[in-house]
């Protein structure tokens, strides 16, 4: 497993003020696979996700200790520029949050600030590529100049995915990307996640165990700030080793 792991975390502790949110997390995340983080509310799965692109830096009282490496590089090393890190590790949030700009501008935002496209034609191609990858191109190609906020919830979330992958990151983090969506929109996004793993490594936090079972190849179960168990998704859901995992997936805790 460790040979293809793109993200390796060792001894990761996170504190919010005096409160410890994560305790000695060690997790390897394989390349070009979907890894899901599951567990009851407040178990630290989202906190861990936000360590991977250092979004926790934005919380003044948060303190992250330990060692997280992406492709061998320590992302908390003093010389690391978070801006460059986040260009490599994109994030899709719980609630669709398109900018109040046009669909085109939403997707072009990241490439523009990172200077990824030279000239209008290249940018047009990049925007089209990202929207096609996100499965949204056919629905919006005639109205790229209309506001992204006018789309339906599911379309907005796919727009946010397009916006994220337009920067061509190595890793895409998804923080409960379907929790604000109806079942049909959720199904579309789940299919999309399965396709996206050809090009990206995906880490997804989800409250839905069915979703974890459907989209991910590996699953990590968090409980009360610790990583209880991790392994191939099939094993976690059919023959968990830890009693707490067993209790959670059968609905007795959480």
């Amino acid at each position: 497993m460790s040979k293809t792991a793109i993200i390796t975390a060792k001894d990761v502790d996170v504190f919010y003020g005096d409160k410890q949110a994560l305790d000695k997390i060690a997790l390897d995340i394989p390349e070009y696979k979907v890894t899901s983080l599951i567990g009851p509310s407040g178990c630290g799965k989202s906190t861990f996700l936000r360590c991977i692109n250092r979004m926790n830096d934005l919380v003044p009282i948060a303190r992250v200790e330990g060692d997280i490496r992406i492709a061998g590089q320590d992302i908390y090393a003093p010389e690391v520029d978070v801006v460059a890190l986040r260009a490599q590790v994109g994030m899709v949030f719980q609630k669709p949050n398109p900018f109040p700009k046009s669909i085109y501008e939403n997707v072009a935002y990241g490439p523009k600030i990172h200077g990824l496209a030279k000239g209008k034609t290249e940018m047009d191609e990049l925007v089209q590529w990202a929207l096609e990858k996100a499965g949204l191109w056919n629905e919006v190609k005639d109205r790229l100049d209309q506001p992204g906020t006018g789309l339906s919830g599911g379309q907005q979330q796919r727009l946010c995915i397009a916006r994220t992958i337009a920067v061509k990151p190595k890793v895409v983090l998804m923080d409960e990307p379907c929790s604000a969506l109806d079942p049909i929109a959720t199904a579309i996004i789940e299919e999309l996640i399965d396709e996206l793993r050809q090009n990206f490594t995906i880490v997804i936090v989800t409250h839905s165990m069915q979703q974890a079972a459907r989209v991910s190849q590996r699953t990590a179960f968090f409980h009360l700030g610790t990583l209880v168990e991790t392994g191939p998704t099939k094993n976690i859901f059919t023959s968990p080793e830890d009693e707490r995992t067993q209790n959670y997936i059968t609905g007795r805790i959480g």
Binding site: A84, F99, Y109, G110, C160
Partner: peptide, 19 residues
């Protein structure tokens, strides 16, 4: 959420404010 989206894409603080 708007700020998070922009920062999450790798924009700097001042880029996020301006854009």
């Amino acid at each position: 959420a708007m700020r998070d989206a922009s920062l999450g894409l790798g924009a700097t603080h001042s880029e996020t404010i301006r854009k």
